[in-house]
Amino acid sequence: MGLQHKKKFGLMDYFRSPIQRNAILTAFAFLAIPMLVYLIFVVFPIFQAAYFSLYKWNGLGSLTDFRGIDNFTKIFTDPIFGKAIINNFKIVFLSLIFQIPLSLMIALVIARRFKGAVIFRTIFFLPYILSEVIAGTIWSFVYNPQIGIQNTVLADWIPWLANFQFLGHQDTVFASIFVVLIWKYFGLHMVILIAGMQSIPVEVEEAAYIDGVNKWQLNWHIILPLLKPTILLSIFFSIVGSFQTFDIIWAMGRGDPVNGAETMVTYMYKYGFQRFQLGFGSAVAVVIFMITIGVSLLYQKFTAEKES
């Protein structure tokens, strides 16, 4: 009997034993406030977003106007949201073909600790620590048609550029802002990739050189495959970050003209918040959330397959 009793050490027994009771009480005391903060400001609002998204609601009074999936139909039939989501995917796509390769090339060079490597790293990483608002405002000045760079430098060679407003045309505004995104974030990816390279043992490289491998072969056949997890991580950051893009767009013309640089988050802010359509805005949030979760799951599946 006594043995049997010992085997069944259930939840209630935790409370009977004074040591266990103490552990639970301490854990509770230590976790209560963090948990509360997390529940109130992260978990609860996410669920609320899902709930609000089914209503038409201006943020005042109570939720009564239930609309089912109307908000979502409205989102997916709105050509402006179409523009926004395409812009988000353009940021992802262009980052993959321009930003990551650029960062990778620089990282490959800088990881070889030559004279001045640290200075270059310091300089390339510098834009990352500035806020997007500051970066955006500086570049609005650089692109300014009267005093900016194209009027004083480029216009001498390409006359039609004189007084051309890069941020004032729906066809050029997106590309112009994308240049700023590269400027601001290539240093971050470079630093992540360098960290990945430094975790590759020196012996691997030495062995390769002894086998008579040249630098190009070393980078292409040895370093790159070993660096794959880090590159995937960099890509993941770049994708998740691009779905959140707001500040820099806002600082460089608020997604206009003609929604040329609209993103999903600026769309949510303009059409959900500024116009007090909180139900509709929450529906946009849910769409962004679904896309982000989808990408994260894909990433996890992809990296898990690589590892096994």
Binding site: F41, Q48, F273, L278, V286, I293
Partner: peptide, 16 residues
């Protein structure tokens, strides 16, 4: 919570 982007919660957060 690592998967929750702040932008998603921001409207309900405002109400809250």
């Amino acid at each position: 919570g690592l998967l929750f982007p702040p932008a998603v919660a921001i409207l309900p957060l405002y109400v809250q």
